[in-house]
């Protein structure tokens, strides 16, 4: 019953870029800390420790997290329901019946647009579910498909 479809492989690049930006921000702080350590002649091993920490952090944020996240992310859109799987350590699976879908949006920020990606947001009366980073054409198709299926199966809310 595991959902089968992966999201776009380009998502990995986008997430790595995001990870890089976050890492750069962290490095800025850490470099400042190292400078302070050097100025005040505090023990050198502190600076070395911070450097190692920065490397480790970068490894996690740029390499590990995007990879695991991408591997975990799956979705399936069937006739009567949508199934989504996500998570890093904790695997979360979401089940949304088509009848409950109220509307579908696709959207893309500058980073996603650069790689020709878009994310799909599925809204029910009470919840919002996101499938991040699909190819724009695929996202559009999905949007059409879901809204078509949602209007076919009509039930009283």
């Amino acid at each position: 019953m595991t959902p089968q479809k992966h999201i776009s492989e380009k998502a990995l690049k986008v997430w790595r870029l995001t990870g890089l930006f976050i890492s750069i921000a962290c490095w800025a702080v850490m470099i400042a800390a190292v400078v302070v350590i050097l100025i005040f002649d505090w023990p050198l091993w502190l600076a070395v420790g911070i450097g190692l920490l920065a490397m480790f952090f970068a490894y996690i944020a740029i390499y590990l997290v995007p990879l695991i996240r991408w591997k975990r992310w799956r979705y399936d859109v069937r006739e009567t329901e949508i199934e989504i799987q996500s998570g890093l350590l904790i695997i979360k699976r979401t089940l949304v019946p088509m009848v409950r879908v109220q509307h579908v949006d696709t959207k893309h920020g500058p980073l996603l647009r650069k790689y020709g990606l878009a994310s799909v947001e599925i809204s029910t009366a009470a919840t919002i579910h996101e499938i991040p980073a699909l190819d724009i054409s695929e996202a559009d198709n999905l949007r059409f498909y879901i809204s078509k299926m949602a209007s076919v199966v009509e039930e009283d809310v």
Partner: peptide, 30 residues
């Protein structure tokens, strides 16, 4: 029910357990 979630953490996976939640609309939110 608007949606059903299931969650499995690595520890839960080892013990073959899971968590389940169901969401309904209440007021304007879930």
């Amino acid at each position: 029910i608007q949606a059903v979630y299931s969650e499995v953490s690595p520890f839960q996976k080892r013990a073959n357990l899971a968590s389940v939640s169901a969401v309904v609309k209440s007021g304007a939110g879930p």
